[in-house]
Amino acid sequence: MPAVSFQNVSKTYATTRGPLHALRSVSFDIEPGEFFGLLGPNGAGKTTLISILAGLARASEGRVVVHGHDVLSDYREARRHLGVVPQELVFDPFFNVRETLRIQSGYFGVRRNDDWIDELLTGLGLADKATANMRQLSGGMKRRVLIAQALVHKPPVIVLDEPTAGVDVELRQTLWQFVSGLNKRLGSTVLLTTHYLEEAEALCGRIAMLKQGQVVALESTSALLARAASNVLRFKTDAALPADIAAQARITGRVVQLPALDARAVEHVLARLREAGVMPEDIEVRKADLEDVFLDLTGAHTRPAAGPPQGGAAPSGGSEDTSVPSVGARKS
Rank of each mutant, 00 (worst) to 15 (best):
E119F: 01
A300W: 03
R227M: 10
P32M: 12
L197I: 12
A208T: 14
V90N: 15
T47M: 05
M1T: 13
G318Q: 12
N42T: 09
V84H: 00
V269S: 01
A260W: 08
A329R: 13
T47E: 10
S105G: 07
R143T: 12
V169Y: 08
I283P: 06
Q149A: 15
Q310H: 04
K129Q: 13
A202K: 15
E199Y: 09
R17I: 03
D128V: 12
E199H: 14
M209N: 01
E291M: 04
A57R: 02
E170S: 09
G83Y: 00
S323H: 14
D115R: 12
A246C: 03
K236A: 10
D168I: 11
L182E: 07
P93M: 05
S230L: 04
R17M: 10
R80H: 14
K129L: 11
L203W: 04
A223R: 15
G166A: 13
L191N: 02
L151C: 03
P93D: 10
D168L: 06
P156R: 14
E170D: 14
A44L: 05
W116C: 02
K331W: 13
E275D: 15
A226K: 14
G318A: 09
G181H: 05
V145E: 00
V324A: 00
E267D: 14
S323W: 05
T237R: 07
V110R: 15
T174P: 03
P156G: 07
V293R: 07
A14P: 03
S5D: 14
T122N: 12
G317T: 06
N8C: 11
A306N: 02
F108P: 01
A306Q: 12
K211Q: 14
V4Y: 03
A78K: 03
N133A: 11
I52G: 01
S220L: 09
A229N: 08
G18S: 07
G205H: 08
V26D: 14
V266C: 08
A249C: 04
G37K: 02
M141C: 02
G109Y: 07
A305C: 02
P280C: 05
K287I: 06
F95H: 15
M209Y: 03
L56G: 04
T322N: 08
F36D: 07
P32V: 13
Q214P: 05
A127Q: 15
S10V: 04
E199R: 10
